[in-house]
Write a protein that binds this DNA or RNA. Structure first.
Lengths: 267, 267
DNA sequence: CGCTCATTTGACAGAAATCAAAAGCGGTGG
DNA sequence: CCACCGCTTTTGATTTCTGTCAAATGAGCG
């Protein structure tokens, strides 16, 4: 979004961090926060760069500050499968494991708050309350992953697309409010943060099928294209119907209101 | 499998537990173990019984001692989706959450080592080292769930069946070694622990399609039926080819050698 | 034996992957 | 400004796979 929050020129300070109220830092004490500040440093990756490679012995963990990181699993045949998407304030890397089981790759240009994995583990060892926070967010993530897996295995492609779009519509709210005002829109905007290929991989389908489903939604006037990566949600009820879920389930899946994780910016 | 290890008639003791060397109890100190023993009690559920219902405010966590528990997600339309299978030594229940996001149901007759969730959380608060153990196993479970999700979304049904069978072949080893000896088999045995319906739900398909794929493997002489729930693996190489993975990936997925976990997600 | 339930098999329709090609978009350099 | 290039996205035609409906077979049990 804007890099001003990083106080350019001066050294990194957590209290100026764009995500300090939502990442794991949220629960940190003054003293813990100071130590985290000492341990961490900002780092930028350009779109497409591999942050951690599958199988690597990467000594790197941290938080996503801006941009989107995709968590991928390379399967035989070179097919890249997307296992998860990390948004600002999400934690990346794998504590307590020597080998990375998945790749972390910049899906857009990203800014990361990086730490040495070993230093971080050491830190957790001295701060049981922080380790407790990590446990809580890991448990949440496990639930969310299971829910997503359930979605993926029992729904049609259209249902997965509709569900994904619904979640994006809730997450894109703040981000595009200015764009919405400019266009005098009252409807939510769906901002696709990554390319079709990646979305298709995330939804367990192909770009072609994804495209067809999007166009079907457009034809049915559920969404209206603004540009390639933005849609206006004109018929929320219709979208929910296509998702095959109840509104409640979708809301709980989007987790936009969760204190610990979320979705800051993203253009 | 055999209840003798529970020293019937005497009160429950952890040091006689069938799984004390693999569950979270493995890492517990003498004192912690004594407390866990005080907190826990054995409980049996018959096949089909619901242990924790989705949405419930269940104050119940613990370990699976024997039998298999399925972790399910009821989706709209009443279709039951299996999100994970819990094997002996796996932890069940959800600490630090008031509402159960999934159901826990006995897939076979099961014996559980049960505790009050609140008592267990309280226990963890006083034993940071145990909470650390829980964190480690949760992180492993998250990885495993992601790997399984990747499998499920990008592979054909045959590949999922072959992968599942491969994993079962490694897990069934000790259990059915006697059966193998009786039949003078050198080949591994694949023991299906649950019915076709549940396996199909777990693999994100239908019993019919599952059956067709199994029969295809039989016709190709990859596996040989012993009885309804047991197959002899006659062509490991062929099975691996059908799985679409490398042997290494399959082995890492089966995790039969992991000290702490059984077989949560992807079996 | 007759009952029920689980599994297998068959026929068919629908959904999605694949192959192939056209259209759109963002750069670059003339 | 325009033409060109590489890339992504869309559209079309076709094949393959899978779910569904329906029926047959098999296993366990009183």
């Amino acid at each position: 979004m804007n890099d001003a929050v990083f106080s350019p020129g001066s050294c990194w300070k957590c209290d100026q961090c764009a995500i300090n109220h939502r990442s794991i830092c949220r629960g940190a004490s003054e003293e813990a926060l100071r130590e985290l500040g000492r341990l961490s440093h900002l780092r930028r990756f350009e779109k497409g760069q591999v942050i951690i490679a599958q199988g690597d012995e990467a000594d790197l963990v941290g938080n996503v500050i801006s941009g989107i990181v995709k968590l991928t699993n390379m399967s035989m045949g070179g097919h890249q499968n997307i296992v998860g998407l990390l948004f600002p304030s999400d934690f990346f890397g794998r504590a307590y494991a020597d080998l990375a089981r998945f790749s972390y790759e910049a899906a857009t240009d990203v800014t990361l708050c990086c730490m040495s994995r070993h230093a971080f583990e050491n830190f957790l060892g001295r701060h049981p309350d922080m380790e407790h926070e990590i446990l809580l967010s890991t448990l949440d993530e496990l639930d969310a992953t299971r829910e997503w897996a359930a979605m993926n295995s029992s729904h049609t492609t259209m249902q997965r697309v509709a569900t994904f779009f619904f979640i994006l519509s809730r997450r894109s709210d703040h981000v595009f409010c200015d764009a919405q005002k400019r266009h005098r829109m009252t409807n939510p905007v769906i901002a696709l943060p990554i390319g079709r290929r990646d979305i298709a991989a995330y939804l367990g389908t192909t770009p072609e099928t994804l495209s067809r489903n999007i166009q079907t939604l457009v034809r049915k006037h559920v969404i209206r294209p603004i540009d390639t990566n933005h849609f206006e949600l004109t018929d929320t009820k219709g979208l929910i119907e296509h998702s095959g879920e109840t509104r409640e389930d979708l809301v709980s899946m989007s987790r936009a209101d969760r204190p610990n994780e979320g979705f800051t910016d993203q253009a």
